[in-house]
Simulated scan of single mutants.
Amino acid sequence: MQEPPLVTVLRRRARALPPLLVDGALALLVTGAQLWPLLTTRQYEGLPWHWWGYVVAVASSLPLVWRRRAPLAVLIVSLTTSLLYDLAAPVAEQPVWYGQLVAYYTVAALSSRPIRMLLLACTVVGSFFLPGSPDTALRSGILLVAAYAMGRAAAGSRAQAAALEERAARLERERQLEAQRAAERERARIAREMHDILAHAVSLMVVQAEAGPVAVRKDPARAEAAFDAIAGAGRDAMEQIRRMLGVLKEDGGAPRAPQPTVDDLPELAAQVSGAGLEVTFEVAGEPRPVTAASAVAAYRIVQEALTNIVKHAGATRAGIRLTWEDDTLMIDVTDDGRGAGRALPSGGHGLIGIRERATACGGTAAAGPRTDAPGFHVSARLPLS
């Protein structure tokens, strides 16, 4: 059952107070309670109460100021002084020694298990030797045991609250760590997407731009086609980047066009063919439904492989082959370029990105020189489900 908000606020404010201030106020309150019989009851046969009674009432309660620092010592002082109450007469009858109960509660709540067990044993044995009637001894023992039980309950409640706070803090740390990991994964994904888009578009534009001056002098029609290819690659890159940045906006109002998939590979092959590289596209087997992750990975893997061919291979021909199997899609991209002699630029992420994309959707990827002819071979196996 949830406690009222006012109680929660008061509890929080009370916990914020300095412990010494709280214990001092408690000691004054208990002192007033123990002096109450002496201050309000009638004197004995016209005689004033003995001063000793006032001393004991104060001495058995004021040490509660230090109850958190030395709980056992405060309990011993309170018990000893209260037992000396009847040494003088006349004194008023004390119905309950509140200082003892508070000190007993504190020992039960804060002391170690051996001290608590010794205290319980002494309470049980001492009940038989307390001065006064058996009823008084029994009542005193019951009150002390009740104070002990309340102290243990308070200790258990604090331990449970501390455990819950620790668990909440741990969960919050784990949540922050997971959020950080998710952000890192998202940054890596965005970096791969930006790399794939820009590297592919810029490579095509550079190749066409390098061929443009030669074509202008020898073949104006081809030069015009080269400039058209540069413009098309730039527009495509800008559109994909604009779409990606729109998705990243907080308002979420940007249109979210679908990611390229396996069905867009023929268009990609045609686009690269326009850059002067002869690209063939083959399909073997019956096409099957494929997961969204594998579909995007297939397109990006082929795109990255073609980008590497355009940038580094010095090839004249490249081939794309898709092989549909029962539960996997095999992707093979080959070229007739430099093969093993190919040198990737420092810091390049092309082949690494291919492997990461394949692994991210549960597949595998490999790259290396061709064994059947000069050139390079990139292969990937992606799961269909």
Rank of each mutant, 00 (worst) to 15 (best):
G32A: 15
D326E: 15
G232S: 11
I241F: 09
V56Q: 05
G53P: 06
A215Q: 12
V30Y: 08
G368V: 09
S203V: 02
M1A: 10
V9P: 00
L62V: 14
P289E: 03
D251L: 07
A305E: 02
P287T: 04
A340Q: 08
G53S: 09
C122G: 13
K249N: 12
L28M: 11
Q303K: 12
S133C: 07
A292S: 10
T316R: 13
E193A: 13
D196L: 09
A73F: 02
A179N: 02
L248H: 06
P374K: 00
V378E: 00
R113C: 07
Q259S: 08
L198G: 08
R42H: 12
Y44D: 11
A226C: 12
R116Y: 09
M194T: 13
R12A: 13
W49F: 15
D196P: 00
G234C: 08
Q2S: 11
I230E: 00
G285Y: 00
T80V: 15
A33W: 14
A163V: 08
L329G: 04
E178R: 12
E174G: 03
V283A: 01
M238I: 01
D23R: 15
R68H: 15
A188T: 10
A146T: 10
L110W: 09
L119A: 12
A121L: 11
A367T: 15
A270L: 14
